[in-house]
Design a protein around this nucleic acid. Structure first.
Lengths: 237, 237
DNA sequence: GTCTATATACTGATAGAC
DNA sequence: GTCTATCAGTATATAGAC
């Protein structure tokens, strides 16, 4: 049975590898389409045309358009986290937060299609709430400052957990760190969304906006350490 | 020529009134569909069926689906502003800002379809940037704290301009009011979007989140006026 | 495993008859 | 002013040839 079993396993492994390769080919083509024409332009026919397949064959590897979009979304989310991860190692808390915030917003603004994919993939088709989207949202919730919630993409948790240190200074008493981390995340997300929605319009650049926000939050402390002049609006009087 | 001219004018007026009524009927049906099944479910056929028309006839009153969605979006935007407007009259600056922020987020979270309509109508079909969407975005930019930018829906400008007073205390020197107003708006918008995206999931309720945000921004000043204990994270050390 | 072909059921939009 | 009929797309799914 040894030879037969081995051959059988080899065959299975080869099949699995081939299936994996085909999925990659499909995802590559889908990614190109989304990057070029946006998520709304993604269709099974276009993907099939791009890789010389028939539309029917795609259904052998993906359940449908939504599963492909979700797979791309997870990919892009991982890419965003990977881009932020090294910044989470910056020693100085204020500097680290500054770098993370700017990098996050810059990523969203510079790659609208990618950002759309991360947050919209599960909303393209109405009312679709698949398990993949569920996992994705859990990861986002976790990244916002609730490290105990999920488990899978723990690097996101570590990343935002690292920023919590600046939100909970040792001497601060009544501070809800996770809540403020979510607030900050909402600000960053909102800045990206508003910038994208008003693309091509006169509006405050997201960079200065984030600077002003961080100054308003933490500028007073930093300024107090550097110079006694108060600059933050919340403590001006 | 007097009689002929008068009859002509009457005819024109009647036609215009009739066209206006038909547009209203179409928009009513469209609104019902969007509120029930979401913006993605809005289609010319469904609208036509709902009012007993053929799909082709709708194109006599609207250029297409997008124009209908945009018209609904402008409607909803006006409704949101109308709901916020009385709150802009609250005398106390901090109270006013608190009420406006909570009302804004509550509106967005309680009426997902409406909020989606306001911000997404022009993004449903890819790359569509019509003049109506342009006007809409201009109004939003204006509402964020640039009263001089546009002109049409000035009530939104007055509304957010009123909140600027709390952002620019008389004694505060280096404060960019409009920029901070945009930051606050981004936070509110982001809180709504994240809440809607993670609907049905465990996450911080938007109410406490906004409370924490406002406390972080302005709690110190208010607390300093009421009691000498510092509660804001940015000024804890 | 992949193809062609077909089927159903949608979508926006248009031409032309009445 | 409204209709029917139609075009060109879309997703999804299946049957059967190779």
């Amino acid at each position: 049975m040894s030879i037969v079993e081995r051959k059988d396993r080899e065959l299975h492994a080869r099949h699995a590898a081939r299936a994996h390769d085909q999925r990659e080919r499909i995802l590559d083509a889908a990614r190109r389409i989304v990057m070029r024409d946006g998520l709304a332009a993604l269709s099974m026919r276009k993907i099939a045309d791009a890789i010389g397949y028939s539309p029917a064959s795609l259904y052998l590897y993906f359940a449908g358009r939504d599963e492909i979009a979700e797979a791309l979304g997870r990919e892009c989310y991982a890419q965003l986290l990977a881009q932020l991860e090294p910044l989470g190692l910056i020693a100085d808390a204020r500097e680290r937060l500054h770098a993370l915030a700017h990098a996050y917003v810059a990523y969203g603004c510079d790659h609208p299609q990618t950002y759309e994919l991360i947050f919209m993939a599960h909303k393209t088709r109405a009312e679709h709430v698949g398990p993949a989207a569920r996992r994705h949202r859990a990861a986002l919730a976790e990244a916002a400052g609730e490290p105990e919630a999920g488990a899978a993409p723990a690097c996101g948790a570590r990343l935002f957990a690292a920023t919590l240190s600046v939100l909970t200074p040792p001497s601060g008493a009544h501070v809800d760190g996770p809540l403020l981390a979510q607030s900050l995340w909402a600000t960053l997300h909102g800045a990206v969304m508003l910038t994208l929605a008003r693309a091509g319009f006169e509006h405050a650049a997201p960079g200065p906006l984030i600077d002003a926000t961080l100054d308003a939050w933490f500028g007073a402390r930093a300024a107090a350490a550097a110079s006694p002049a108060a600059q933050a609006p919340g403590v001006a009087s």
